[in-house]
Design a protein around this nucleic acid. Structure first.
Lengths: 202, 202, 202, 202
DNA sequence: TATGAATGAGCATTCATTCAT
DNA sequence: CATGAATGAATGCTCATTCAT
């Protein structure tokens, strides 16, 4: 699995507290619905404190994108690291990705929705993060093809389709108040997606 | 094709001028990056003029969602109205949907991205619009099944996958500066999606 | 009884409709809490209609002061016109004044309270109206003295005291939601005020 | 003398500077004739500064009512605290009340007139303050009766009359540009009011 | 490092007034 | 005479950012 293109900063303890607070607030109220004061309060520090750790609200948001992507990525990476078979790796990776997002409503909202809320200036960065995950899928598909596990397919397109489908599924799950169990519809999703590479999962 | 759930307001001439101006600005600079003054200027009217036609900036945005969805929907609807075969209807509908969005960068950005940028308060409404289009796909799939044109499938899930894939494709096309021709990758997309219903398009 | 110093305009029918509507709204919501649109709607006309009859909102307010004072004054004047004895005239005049105000909550609020709400620029005019009524009291006191009905007193001061006391009584009656009957406390008031001129009313 | 019902906030230094500036401006130009910017400028601070200390213009105004009432009340209270005889207490209290108001045109205008100018929403609060002072008078009258210093009278009514008369006297003095000396007419007023309780002051 | 008072540019919204029809 | 769309100056309020302590 390719090493992430995300800036892998080592976050200090205090940074993390702020980032966690900001993550929650941004996810819940959006970028513009969250004030620096709100974040300071939630992080048990002061406005000045925030500005000591991050040069601006925008930079904090950008850092948060990296932070959140790092969280997600490392979870997936750890789960997949010692799986050898690329198809199994894909299965496992997607599963952990979905499971992680599903169990962190906050992460989900930030990653899927509110990331766009900061305005056009920040959207490119969120796309980068999305591309990172599309790339992860693509890499495994290509490995699977190289190893003859699946027939050659348009990996660039398939990875986009898979990510798009996953994204849309999660989005709906988020907006319907998470009433329906995500697990079950996820299983069905995977089975359908498998058809796009002429494979029967499970 | 189901009649739209969108509020079918009859927009007056002046309303439309304002909506068009707002559409362009919101799409380009986001909800928070666009001031009412900007809109007034772009619509060749005054701030007060905007408020004479719309009760608030937020209402204007909401009205815009309906307006944009109406534009898209009527385009698709007109193109599909006198096609009988549901599979052909689907093909044609998706094609017109993509073509329309692709030829209106502004509409695309607004519809796909900036709709979320206005903050949590507006996201529910954008989701409604997305659901409307997911519903259109679902309806045709079910008609196709009823008429025996395709095998029975999980239409609820398939329609989400298709929309998600389409969405993601358009999103990438938008963010890559529309360099690559959308048409070509769209054709490949359709062929892959067809596999999810065990069908060979074309 | 002296003829009023108030501009005794002959109000046209349409003027009156507007004035009555404005009176009600100003009394209820204050000068700044009432828009020209509100008045237009309440008077069954349009904004332009208002401006045809009155040059500005401020002028309408000023006209209203005259109109309201005229209403009050003419009521009192009619009741008192053919009373000869100045003491009886006083008694009757005050009684009608209080009764009229008490039965027109709107008139009361406008005359006693909201008249001040239009800002310093208009307060002088309201004071004029108040002075008019103080003058009415003073005139009768002086007549009574001239006719030997009461002992010579400081009429300038006494009239202010009486008006002030009456004013305060009405103010409290207004703000307590008019729960207590005004009539009864008014009777007691008069008896007390009589002492200030060494007289026993009734 | 009853302890004041007024919110006895401890105003901080900066609060006071703002309150004093606002008092002057509100008194001179009325509530609606005074902008928050005006106040900021007059208080040598910025608009944001005002909002750091007071949540809104309306709250500032309300705070000002308490502040002004507190000023007046404490002046009167201090002057009266160690006077034992209730009649002397009344005399002294009213005198200080009038003298204080008379020497602070600003306080006078705010307290007597502009308090009403802010619109219906604020009038209740001003009435409360007025009632506070009416209550002070009433308390002393009752004490005087209890101690047999004056004959039993309708203290509720008398206190309203006295306050109303005082109020009106001050109002006229204000609007006539304070040309005539208030002291002299005040002395005459007291002598007349004394008659309402069958007493000869001085 | 941390704090929080202060700043001021920015913005949505209101509303008296005008004027073409 | 009447209408109501249009204007734009005015204003209350927000909030990212700074900086003295």
């Amino acid at each position: 699995m390719r090493s992430p293109r995300t800036r892998q900063t080592r976050w200090l303890v205090r940074d993390r507290e702020i980032l966690e607070a900001a993550l929650r607030l941004f996810a819940e109220n959006g970028y513009h619905g969250t004030t620096v004061d709100d974040i300071a309060r939630a992080a048990n520090t002061s406005k000045g404190g925030i500005y000591f750790h991050f040069p601006s609200k925008g930079d904090l948001f950008l850092a948060l994108l990296d932070y959140a992507a790092g969280l997600l990525f490392s979870k997936v990476d750890r789960a997949v690291r010692d799986v050898d078979d690329p198809v199994a790796k894909l299965e496992r990776g997607l599963e952990v990705f979905v499971r992680t997002i599903a169990s962190h409503r906050t992460l989900a909202r930030f990653f899927l929705v509110e990331g766009f809320g900061a305005g056009p200036a920040f959207q490119a960065r969120l796309r980068d993060v999305h591309e990172l995950f599309i790339g992860l899928i693509k890499d495994q598909l290509e490995a699977a093809i190289r190893q003859g596990r699946i027939r050659p397919v348009d990996t660039g397109l398939i990875s986009v389709i898979w990510f798009g489908a996953l994204y849309q599924l999660l989005l709906r799950w988020l907006s319907t108040g998470e009433s329906a169990p995500l697990e079950e519809s996820y299983d069905r999703l995977v089975r359908v997606l498998a058809k796009t590479i002429d494979l029967e999962f499970d």
